[in-house]
């Protein structure tokens, strides 16, 4: 067990990094796509819908393979490192699901908040940034937490595009030592622990953001 752990932890560290950066991209993509989806400007709305449906409707592994195998070839000729492919693929995939979550969250902000903002003469951008988005993000945390855990689990697929994450290391060690039961049990436990870390982390964030607010109180 002692020899297994360091390498597995290395893999777990890669998994955490991919999860972290992938989450950042997913959150940005989700907000932008949700806004685009709600935009009155039709071309932007069509584009957002296309992005959401495309990345939700196709398999993540297909998306990763496409980015990994197809993008370097003509006519695109874009060569991304496995790490970059992982972050872009996971971020855009989960971001598409996140867009629907954000859309619901933005819709859940009370209409009175918009009216008060108009009365105080906020520009649409400032209103979104200071008033609507903070409240929407808070509402998005419960479903968003599930999506982040999905993202964590999906990072296991990057092992199939040669990235040395926890799953990759587990396979590697299994082929080297054949201590199959220990290795994969340990891998499962490590993922489980990471998922719970995300749970606790998000709950802590939720508590901090809703400081002074009653759940379901008056707006």
């Amino acid at each position: 067990m002692g020899e297994l752990l360091p390498l597995m932890l290395q893999g777990a560290w890669v998994t955490l990094q991919v999860t972290f950066y992938g989450s950042l991209l997913a959150i940005v993509a989700a907000i932008l796509a949700a806004l685009g989806r709600l935009s009155p400007w039709l071309p932007l709305r069509w584009f957002s819908i296309a992005y959401i449906e495309l990345f939700r409707g196709t398999s993540l592994l297909v998306q990763l393979f496409w980015l990994f195998f197809v993008l370097p070839l003509p006519p695109f000729n874009i060569e991304l490192s496995p790490f970059a492919v992982a972050i872009v693929g996971l971020g855009l995939h989960i971001g598409a699901y996140g867009a629907e979550v954000m859309r619901g969250a933005i819709g859940s902000v009370a209409k009175g908040q918009y009216e008060a903002s108009v009365a105080l003469n906020f520009s649409a951008f400032t209103r979104f940034r200071r008033i609507i988005l903070p409240q929407a993000l808070l509402a998005a945390i419960p479903p968003g937490t599930n999506l982040l855990i999905e993202l964590l689990k999906n990072t296991s697929l990057v092992s199939l595009i040669t990235l040395s994450d926890l799953s990759f290391r587990a396979r590697q060690l299994d082929q080297a030592t054949f201590e199959t039961l220990q290795i994969f049990t340990l891998a499962l436990i490590m993922y489980f622990v990471m998922a719970q870390m995300i749970n606790f982390g998000m709950r802590w964030i939720e508590r901090r953001l809703s400081r002074g607010r009653m759940r379901g109180g008056l707006s």
Binding site: K153, S156, L157, S167, R171, T185, F192
Partner: peptide
């Protein structure tokens, strides 16, 4: 909870490589 929180990939690895033993 455990199965929902862990990747499908590792679970199938587990079944495919551990069970034969």
């Amino acid at each position: 909870e455990f199965i929902r929180s862990t990747p499908l990939l590792i679970q199938v690895y587990f079944l495919y490589y551990v069970l034969p033993n």
